[in-house]
Computed example of a mutant assay.
Amino acid sequence: MFRIIQRLVPVAALAVAASAAVASEDIPDKYPQSPLYDKPVQVTDRVWSAIGATAPPTYENQGHNNNLSFIVTDDGVVVINGAASTALARALHDEIRAITDQPVKLVINENGQGHAMLGNGYWREQGVKIVAHEDAAAEFADSAPQALESLQNYAREGAEGTVIVAPDETFTDRYDASMGGVTIEVLHLGPAHSPGDTQVWLPDDKTLIAGDIAFHERMLPLFNDTCTSCWIETWDNALVPLGAEIVIPGHGHPTDMETVQLYTRDYLLDLREKIGAHIEDGGDLAGAYYVDQSRWQDLDTFDELATKNAGLVFAEMEFE
């Protein structure tokens, strides 16, 4: 039997905590002796995650602002996310070696963003196979030079040794990563946050390493090509039916489905409702930036993202 190691924080407790929180980009590093923002924590008997900062990438967090997870089996380790740099990938590998003697046999990139794939070069040097969704691989091929330049600008010496390395193999809908008697399903449930969003599902444990389809503790960012209506549809029709009990989101601490639904799907629904009403009233793009999002103002990165998200949803909904 598996068991939950980390206590999950319920929605009610989070609401109380959020009322006293102040959203800020200035979030201190929790693990200064390592390039990692924080030391990996054990979530279940076989799943660990190094929880990233709920802030933009900075010199202090070295781009570790997403969750770097791994699954320990009796026949090897599966890592979810190549990390934002060679330095971060190496630091994560050091932590894995301190936990288990099992070798890392597979790396899964959860999307095509730099903090999921720029560490691939380190894993390639270790002879580890790297897998990603075909759309994530295509996005990385287009955006990797800019992502690497950004890393070099904020991480400075922390970017040394980082090179652009594409995944070894891609998949379309699902990939079987089962290992050591553990069923590990790598899924693309549908369009959500960014092209090729990938979820890693452990059905026997009802544990979902959700990637950026799910957010917690920080405001989610939207991109020019994000389809928010598609994201909600994927959530309702494909994610919820999995029946996950433990969720490691792309950003924020492990929790449950109720909590990530509040900060992801419910946020998207609320913003779309506000923008829809604004459009019905004849409002324009300039006014859309100021629709009321105060319900979410205690989330980290609110100040950086709220108005941008509103503008992107207006552009999406204006001709729906």
Rank of each mutant, 00 (worst) to 15 (best):
G252K: 06
A315C: 10
C230H: 07
G196S: 12
T54N: 12
R3H: 14
A214H: 13
E304Y: 12
V77M: 10
D225N: 13
A238F: 10
D270P: 02
A23H: 06
Q261I: 00
A137M: 02
D298I: 07
I71N: 09
D45W: 03
T198K: 01
A288K: 05
A83N: 09
E157A: 12
Q113C: 04
L285C: 00
T172A: 11
T307G: 07
R46A: 04
L189Q: 02
L269C: 14
F302N: 12
E316R: 08
Y37H: 14
A23T: 01
D292G: 11
Q42M: 06
E320S: 08
W48L: 14
L312C: 04
Y289T: 12
P254Y: 04
E258G: 12
F70S: 01
D292N: 15
A17S: 08
D300T: 13
D74N: 14
N237G: 15
F319E: 14
N237F: 01
A306F: 06
T44C: 04
N81K: 13
D303N: 15
E304H: 02
L269F: 01
A147V: 04
L68Y: 14
T73N: 01
W201S: 01
G161C: 07
A144M: 10
H251V: 11
H278D: 08
L118Y: 04
S49N: 11
A23E: 13
A141Y: 01
D176K: 09
Y267K: 05
G287H: 11
I80Y: 04
V240R: 07
S69C: 07
N65G: 10
